[in-house]
């Protein structure tokens, strides 16, 4: 299963689950030891393959949640889809010590490159926060100077992944701002009733178009369509808006 030396070739290899972390009632992080992992950029994903005893197999792509300091584990955070074939296995069945096949990293577009000096706006819908979390962690590790603003839409406070970590990072990092949008129920004392993300949210908590930020939007298709349309209408350059969508319409 060793990776071949062929450059640019993605080979399947066995990773070992070294820890699992429950992020929300329906989302879990798998901490993976991947021998020889070549490293990844924040925003990239990997392909994962499960194989049943009779040889039937299923593949899916998952965003990487961790940054890459040069070694250490690779973390993916999985949202359980109730009618899913693979995600319920990863959130409910997999245990520490299990082996999982994967290959990656994949994707060179939905990637934050710290050498880019522009301010950064991250807009997440639900589990779309996962690849953006990799960017936030990379920023923290590098002590990057580009300021980050994050808008994170969740149904309820219980659905927010990484909530404690985000709170800690905001407290310790003057260049990081995180604004939550609650669509079904807000925490006690929250100043606004639950609502969907709208022009006012993005106008108040994003960057002005004049700042020419690098914008990353990830979430369900309808969420990403809405946010990208608002950003374009506010005057952001469509070429600066990178999107990743999941689910049908």
């Amino acid at each position: 299963m060793a990776r071949t030396a062929l450059p640019g070739r993605l080979t399947w290899q066995a990773a070992t689950v070294t820890a699992v972390r429950q992020e929300t009632p329906s989302a879990r992080t798998l901490v993976l030891d991947v021998p020889g992992w070549p490293g990844h950029l924040p925003g990239q994903h990997l392909d994962l393959r499960l194989t049943a005893e009779d040889g039937y197999s299923a593949q899916r792509s998952y965003s990487i949640a961790s940054d890459w300091p040069g070694d250490g584990p690779v973390e993916i955070t999985i949202q359980r889809l109730e009618d899913g074939e693979v995600s319920p296995y990863l959130t409910d069945v997999v245990e520490t010590g299990d082996k999982i096949e994967l290959r990656g990293p994949i994707g060179g577009w939905f990637v934050w490159r710290p050498a880019q000096p522009a301010p950064v706006l991250l807009v997440a819908g639900g589990s779309g926060v996962v690849p953006l979390m990799s960017m936030i962690r990379e920023r923290g590790r590098l002590r990057a100077r580009q300021p980050f603003r994050v808008i994170y839409s969740v149904r309820t406070p219980e659905d927010a992944c990484f909530a404690d970590e985000l709170k800690r990072r905001v407290r310790d990092d003057a260049g990081l701002d995180v604004h939550f949008v609650y669509t079904r129920s807000a925490p006690d004392g929250w100043p606004a009733p639950p609502k969907r993300i709208d022009v006012a949210t993005i106008n108040s908590h994003g960057w002005p178009p004049d700042f020419a930020p690098d914008v990353f939007v990830c979430g369900p298709t309808s969420f990403v369509e809405t946010v990208a349309d608002i950003l374009v209408a506010l005057g952001h350059d469509p070429k600066k808006i990178r999107t990743e969508r999941f689910g049908g319409k």
Partner: peptide, 28 residues
């Protein structure tokens, strides 16, 4: 694996969907 019965004749590594996912690199 739950989908094998409903997934006849697909290319390797693919699964069947009935909706129509949207994949785009930027705004529409």
């Amino acid at each position: 694996g739950r989908r094998r019965d409903s997934a006849p004749d697909l290319p390797p590594g693919q699964y069947l969907t009935h909706d129509f996912p949207v994949l785009s690199a930027g705004p529409t």
